[in-house]
Nucleic acid binder design. Sequence first.
DNA 1: CGTCAGGTCTCTA
DNA 2: TAGAGACCTGAC
Length: 295
Amino acid sequence: MKLKITEENNSVIIENIKDFVPKHIFDCGQCFRWNEEEDGSYTGTAYKKTINVKKEGEKIILFNTNIDDFKNIWYDYFDLKKDYTNIKNELSKDNVLEGAIKFGQGIRILNQDEWEILISFIISANNRIPMIKRAIEKLSEKYGVFLEEYRGKKRYSFPTAGTLSKLSEEEIRTCSTGFRAKYILSASKIVSENEKLLYDIKNLCLKDAREELIKFSGVGPKVADCIMLFSMNKSGAFPIDVWVKRVMEHFYVSEGIKLNEIQNYAADKFGDLAGYAQQYLFYYARELGIGRNKK
DNA sequence: CGTCAGGTCTCTA
DNA sequence: TAGAGACCTGAC
């Protein structure tokens, strides 16, 4: 079924859309700059634009935007060209995933900016989501560009590599980044001196891209897979954080198994759909608190 | 007050 | 080459 797109009053209405639930999309761990409003809609900033996303019945409404931005930014950002029904049908052949998908049936994997995601997930290491969000917002407020005031809040772009590369480690630390400040500074210098680098990495195969990303200090296997999955269109990436480890040990593999063995297991079992499987499993594990009481 | 969080780095054997 | 410790920060 083809999407029906209409524009009115500075908003874009999407009809005939399936597999799109804002809560599932924005709350499955892939993004940090989207926040829930009192009416259940979400407001966020990406690619220098701020919009509000609301599900009304079967329609999705994007507020504070227009058709041009929808075509140029949001269509790809929300991965609207992809048929998630097929993906879910395929993954549902596995009993565990069948259940997980029922919880997060409206998940979509966003296509986010590589640079922003690199820094965001460096910040995520050994950190909590509210703290990660706070650090990213502080960086944006201090070193991003003011965009507009929307819904009573000033909105800023995510700072560029060039801007961050000129800061001191201490200045970056004032944004609650902690010991990760030196990694952020290092990555900023590398990327600002080679603007094509992330783009080049994006064009590599999964294995090679992972190898290149791990060369950034502060980027290990988990963060590398997040970057590949959330900003480099590599659906075979399978980031293993504590939740995914717990849910994998609960349902699939024996406890105490090494992370790279879980990685191989997932690659064998889910192949190119591993990243989608990871998102459904992560959301499922966190919503249900699977394995939370175990060590 | 300790503990610990969506890991990674560093230092040892 | 694998395994322990340390690590900013702030909420409990």
